[in-house]
Nucleic acid binder design. Structure first.
Lengths: 228, 228
DNA sequence: TCCTGGTATATGGTATACCAGAGAAGATTT
DNA sequence: AAATCTTCTCTGGTATACCATATACCAGGA
């Protein structure tokens, strides 16, 4: 399938340097496995500005934004440090995710179309019993995609925004065996049950299923995942 | 009793200009009734920096932070505008609040002490039947205090942080008759029921009561409050 | 050898100057 | 007088220089 029209980035209004620096930094931090090995957690304004080819001013604004999001911590006259969340913080994030996705599922029963709900099958069936054979990271991403899809169905932009913000942090530990084989199988069964509830327009049940599902994930991480 | 060694207070880390400008601006914006009258919604960097007595650089960083929080919108070469949330956005915020406070209530049943829960009575009883006679703004603040107290009992800092962020926006319409007399009476009855569930350590019921309570508020605002 | 105070350096914070584009105001044309 | 073009100004964006202090390093004395 070739594109039927030239895919061009709006050349005009190439984003501000701040926005570009922000995206580049966020991507870079997200890519690196900050919980593994002895990665360097310290950044340097001057060095970064030189490497990006921009001055410190827009770079600092990008860093300030990352600081507010909690990805980075700027300390006066000390340096800029990539933040490793504590396990307790990860637990809180999963809990918030559970609350919001649960609400989203309930809302979705009211506002999502049959077609939209039906589309969820594709996000589960594509894997089926083969999922466990795949690379866990890949499954994990697909898993999150499913949950984000439910959130999207709620048509509540704020829930999407907040969970997207949490996603960045939780993603950092996605490769840490959160989803091993048994959980993957169980997870898929849960997902199918959730879809059933959505199709039945049973908001209360859908909300409870989603909440329980995610809180089980939370307990699993609590017990078996060791974060630094 | 004479000190046998020099008693020294750690010198208080005088905040950065950015932090001070941020607090001052946020307070100023929060105070003003942005939904009423023809308030000026436009800000000017140079004017503000002159009035604060600081340069544009730290001021800009404070504004960038407010922009990210959604209180303000910075538009290149156009100006800086105080943001009026749409009614739909307020609805989404109340929905998120409902989801998070509901989860907080459920968590509180597990982690809060009897003493902490008992303290909630003070936040309701102080008003009792007299609440309706008070200035609504005052009641509204007390009302929010009650809900924030429940959130605090969950010991989930993230939930507190997110709802605090929402509070800033919702507060802006607090004087717009969200809580008129009938609602106030009903609200207090709800609150007492919530406390009962918490004391009974019935997490599921507490969560449902809180959620329903807040979603009723949401529906009320949807129907009767006119923003803009 | 080990402590103590001084000094150099690194690093984030702040001030200032200049840039570029959007809009308004004025000039020009029809 | 209306429409269009030109210029000018106002405003946020960016670059750069300087400031203040946390830390590392060093020298000298007990």
């Amino acid at each position: 399938m070739s594109a039927n029209r030239l895919s061009v980035e709006p050349i005009g209004e190439s984003q501000s340097l701040k926005a570009r620096a922000y995206k580049a930094l966020k991507a870079a931090i997200t890519e690196m496995n900050i919980y593994d090995s002895k990665v360097e957690l310290r950044l340097d304004e001057r060095d970064l500005s030189a490497r990006f080819g921009i001055s410190r001013t827009p770079l600092r604004e990008a860093l300030a934004q990352l600081d507010q999001e909690g990805l980075v911590r700027v300390v006066a006259r000390r340096g800029i440090f990539i933040v490793r969340r504590t396990k307790a913080e990860i637990m809180e994030m999963i809990t918030v995710w559970a609350a919001l996705e649960s609400m989203a599922a309930t809302l979705a029963c009211k506002v999502a179309s049959d077609q939209e709900i039906a589309a969820l099958h594709d996000l589960v069936d594509d894997f089926g019993q083969d999922a466990v054979a795949r690379r866990m990271g890949e499954y994990s991403d697909a898993n999150i995609t499913f949950h984000q899809a439910i959130i999207g169905l709620s048509k509540n932009q704020l829930i999407s925004d907040i969970t997207d913000g949490l996603f960045v942090h939780v993603r950092a530990i996605r490769n840490r065996a959160i989803f091993e084989n048994d959980r993957a199988r169980r997870s898929i069964a849960d997902h199918k049950e959730i879809i059933e509830a959505l199709e039945a327009r049973d908001g209360e049940r859908a909300g409870k299923l989603v909440c329980d599902h995610t809180m089980r994930l939370r307990d699993h991480v609590e017990r078996y995942v060791d974060i630094e």
